[in-house]
Nucleic acid binder design. Structure first.
Length: 120
DNA sequence: ATGCTGACTACTG
DNA sequence: CCAGTAGCCAGCA
C-alpha cells in the first residue's frame, strides 16, 4: 500500500490536481512550482509510490516531451491514450510519435494563484 | 547505517 | 541524435 505522503509529496499532489485537461507539465516544472527546485525525481517517485487514482497523473511528462514510463509498456500506452483522448497530439504521426510538443501543450499556471497556495 | 534503483534533468562531448 | 556524468533523494533490501 502507498505510504503516507511527506509534506513535499503532498504539495506535489495538490499541484498536480490543478493541471487542466489538454495540458501537460514536466516532472521538473511540477517540482519547481511546489517550491522544490532540482527535485524532479521526487515527482516521479511520488507518482510511482502514491495513489494517483483520482489525479491527472497522465499529464506529467518528461521535460523533452517523452513519457516517463518505459516506451510500449502498459502504463505508457494508457498515458498516451489518455492524452490523445483530451486532445494532446504527439509530434509527427500520432501512431508512431512518442513526444508531446511541450511548447504547445505545457501548462502555464497563474503565478499569483500558486503563491496563494503555498504562502505561509 | 549502507548501498542501489529509479515515471528526472541539464550539461558535455 | 546518442552516451556519459553529475546532482537529486525517497523507498527498499
Amino acid at each position: 500500500m502507498a505510504s503516507h505522503p511527506t509534506q513535499a509529496q503532498q504539495q506535489i499532489l495538490t499541484l498536480l490536481a490543478l493541471v487542466p485537461c489538454g495540458k501537460v507539465v514536466s516532472y521538473g516544472q511540477l517540482a519547481d512550482l511546489a517550491g522544490l527546485p532540482g527535485r524532479a525525481r521526487l515527482v516521479g517517485s511520488t507518482l510511482r509510490t502514491q495513489n494517483t487514482e483520482q489525479l491527472p497523473w497522465h499529464r506529467v511528462v518528461a521535460a523533452d516531451g517523452r513519457l516517463g514510463l518505459p516506451k510500449g509498456s502498459p502504463g505508457w500506452l494508457e498515458q498516451r491514450q489518455r492524452l490523445l483522448a483530451e486532445g494532446v497530439l504527439f509530434k509527427g504521426d500520432p501512431l508512431t510519435g512518442d513526444k508531446v510538443p511541450m511548447a504547445k501543450y505545457q501548462w502555464q499556471p497563474d503565478l499569483a494563484a500558486m503563491l496563494m497556495l503555498f504562502e505561509r
